[in-house]
């Protein structure tokens, strides 16, 4: 397992501007990434659009069918073709970076000072668990993150609690604990550098990073 992929994970649900900025950052901090080719993004793109992909996950109405959560048996009974992908990916042919960029596993967003899983978060995690059940060789790192409004010290513990809540739910859904590790970054690595409600909501998250396939 590469240290680099754990410390500088590629993010999935980024607006174009943030992605460019992050790519530029990666180019400076890691040796095995392609150099950034883009210049500075246009100023009007620096502020993330209001309706980002990541936001959608937290603001979407909870799906009634999945709000109660699935039992382990129910999850195991889900046939592989339940998702939009009808054929299994050839994950062996893809790099970890590609797999993470393609966004097969979705972030979940938490409420302020909370590590509780809402029905919509559980639904997202159930999708993640289904994907993981199709690719049993995949191992993940569950990262807990916090927004900037909390304190550095407490946020480290809060991020840990968020990562643990996600790991425990995935475990309850049948994902083997040997395939999952957790880590807290507190508020050290915000996904969105903004200082507003939108940014804070996006930053209060657990991110699932594929670290082995």
């Amino acid at each position: 397992m590469k240290l680099d992929s754990r410390l500088f994970p590629t993010r999935r649900a980024l607006p174009a501007a943030s992605l460019l900025a992050l790519l530029a950052a990666f180019a400076c901090s890691s040796v095995d990434r392609t150099p950034a080719t883009g210049s500075e993004p246009p100023p009007d793109l620096v502020t993330p659009p209001e309706a980002s992909e990541a936001e959608g996950a937290s603001t979407a109405d909870p799906s009634p069918s999945s709000s109660g959560g699935l039992t382990e048996d129910e999850i195991l009974a889900i046939p592989p073709e339940v998702g939009s992908e009808t054929d299994l990916l050839d994950i062996g042919a893809k790099s970890l970076e590609e797999l993470n960029t393609e966004g097969h596993l979705k972030d979940v967003q938490f409420e302020y000072d909370s590590a509780d899983l809402s029905p919509s978060m559980r639904a997202t995690l159930e999708e993640n668990a289904a994907w993981l059940s199709r690719y049993p060789s995949v191992s993940i790192l569950v990262e807990g993150h916090c927004d900037e409004r909390g304190t550095v010290e407490y946020n480290l513990a809060l991020g840990e609690e968020r990562a643990r809540a996600v790991r425990d739910y995935l475990r309850d859904l049948g994902v083997g604990t040997g395939r999952m590790r957790i880590i807290s970054y507190g508020k050290e690595f915000p996904l969105d550098p903004g200082h507003n409600e939108t940014a804070w909501r996006r930053n209060r998250r657990a991110h699932l990073e594929i670290v082995a396939k």
């Binding site: 397992m1 240290l3 754990r6 410390l7 901090s29 550095v152 010290e153 480290l156 590790r181 880590i183 807290s184 970054y185 507190g186 050290e188 690595f189």
Partner: peptide, 26 residues
């Protein structure tokens, strides 16, 4: 080049304890 945070001094001012993610986990 990793994440190194929350230093704390030894009482003799000659050493620090801190948290580092240099090997992955803090």
């Amino acid at each position: 080049g990793s994440l190194n945070i929350t230093p704390s001094w030894s009482p003799d001012g000659r050493a620090l304890s801190y948290i580092s993610y240099r090997e992955g986990a803090p």
